[in-house]
Amino acid sequence: MTTVLDVQDVTKVYGAGDTAVHALRGIRLTVDEGDYVAIMGASGSGKSTLMNILGCLDVPTGGRYLLDGLDVGALDDRRLAVLRNRRIGFVFQSFNLIPRMSALANVELPLAYGGVKAPERRRRALAALAQVGLADRVGHEPNELSGGQQQRIAVARALVTSPALLLADEPTGNLDTRSTEDVLGVLDRLSADGRTIVLITHEDDVAARAKRVIRLVDGRVVEDRRAAPVAGPPPGPAEAEVRNR
């Protein structure tokens, strides 16, 4: 089994001197291919900082971070852009779709930056949209869609490049119960297909859907619990409900 994520003693400090904030105080973490990890923690626990570092949007103050065996700290701007494009799919809490662009164009965007030709791009974008169950909404702009639909489009955008890792930063944080179920259902299916997923949440019922739950407190890992084997399917909604009871 290959290791997708290898985080070695990563620290992150904001500011300097007396006002320095230690967001991460030495995180050690490995994630294998096909795993579905939920990172939990109260606000200020450093989970978002960790997510940004994992997504190559931010750089750690100390430690090493290997993605697919590649040391991210050693890469320059251009290579980082390629890495973000090919290896990582990022889903944000606030969807972050580009306004005034159709759902299809939004999903095509990563492929456009990856240099994929137009017909191929369209085919793959349509396939990704079908995967999240929005094949009938391709022509709609983000402001014409519900929050749940927007987030599913964001998921489609994240997985259209077939990335090694799907990162989701509180993907259900801005959604109602039904939409949350829609999005979690999509993630379950992706996990069942063998996609590696790392998700941040502070809701127990969301974390219960993952195969593994990691709890962060004050920038340190305090709990790392496996709920289901890496190779098997994710627990799913029924089992998650049982577990939460």
Binding site: G55, L57, D77, R78, A81, V82, L83, R84, N85, R86, F90, F92, N96, L97, I98, P99, L109, P110, Y113, G114, R157, A158, T161
Partner: peptide, 16 residues
Amino acid sequence: TREIGIRKAIGAPKGA
């Protein structure tokens, strides 16, 4: 700026 951030997050190179 936010749009630029999104574009960069999904892998837009500096040149683009």
